[in-house]
């Protein structure tokens, strides 16, 4: 029985990978770039030839050379190492920001979609207003108010991504709660908490994963 299920899931995985690879050259290139980027970020300390912050004032703004494949910056730091570590920081912070936004946005969307009414109006109006502030303006000003630094940038980017999650989750819940299995759960007297987190959230999850990965890319760009 278990054996069978395992075989099935692995077959499913294989199938979806095949479908993905069959989607053409472009997506294959994208996949390679993505994997490369993540690898570089993870293995930064092993790959980079220098420490990103070691200065060498005698060798400032050096052109490309075998020692410094991408040259050095105005403080004599190795550019290649800095880019490699930069990838790491970018990935880390966008991951963190994404998780932060997802946690808050999903919760708000869940509540607004399930309970509706005034609560929903307030949450949706707020997120609409948020969406009317251009992303860069919002992120920059929040980061500035919080005093700069990586932490505040992560929080600012995260705050900026909340409304997309709210909107998406709200819509997902609205359609999901129409399902008969939610009615059935209500009839058995199941608590709202359980319906929210054991039925609605898991059933909305696949679409959320897609949004999360898309936002990850956006987070890196910011």
């Amino acid at each position: 029985m278990d054996e069978l299920r395992k075989n099935k899931t692995s077959a499913k995985l294989k199938n979806s990978i095949q479908v993905f690879l069959g989607r053409g050259l472009l997506s294959r290139i994208c996949l390679v770039i993505l994997i490369l980027f993540v690898m570089i970020a993870i293995f930064a300390p092993y790959i980079s030839p220098y420490h990103p912050n070691i200065q060498n004032l005698r060798n400032r703004l050096a052109p490309f050379s075998s020692e410094h494949p991408l040259g050095t910056d105005h403080l004599g730091r190795d550019m290649l190492s800095r880019i490699i570590y930069g990838a790491r920081v970018s990935l880390q912070s966008s991951l963190l920001a994404g998780l932060f936004a997802a946690a808050i946005g999903i919760l708000l969307g869940l509540l607004s979609g399930y309970y509706g009414g005034l609560l929903s109006t307030v949450i949706l109006r707020l997120s609409d207003a948020h969406l009317s502030i251009p992303g860069h303006v919002f992120t920059l000003s929040v980061a500035a108010v919080m005093g700069g630094g990586l932490h505040s940038i992560v929080i600012a980017i995260g705050l900026g991504m909340i409304p997309t999650y709210v909107r998406m989750m709200n819509g997902l819940v609205l359609s999901c709660k129409e399902n008969d299995y939610i009615t059935a759960s209500l009839l058995t007297g199941e608590s709202n908490l359980k319906i929210l987190f054991k039925h609605l959230l898991p059933n909305c999850f696949p679409s959320l994963i897609v949004l999360f990965t898309m936002n990850l890319g956006n987070g890196i760009m910011m």
Binding site: S132, I133, V137, F138, L140, S141, V145
Partner: peptide, 26 residues
């Protein structure tokens, strides 16, 4: 202007800019 104001922490300009930009968007 907004970026300069943000780096300088010039709150009055930031406030005004955020509001004006948002009005344009809305």
């Amino acid at each position: 202007w907004l970026i300069r104001a943000i780096t300088n922490r010039d709150y009055w300009i930031v406030q005004a800019c955020v509001l004006v930009i948002s009005i344009v968007t809305v």
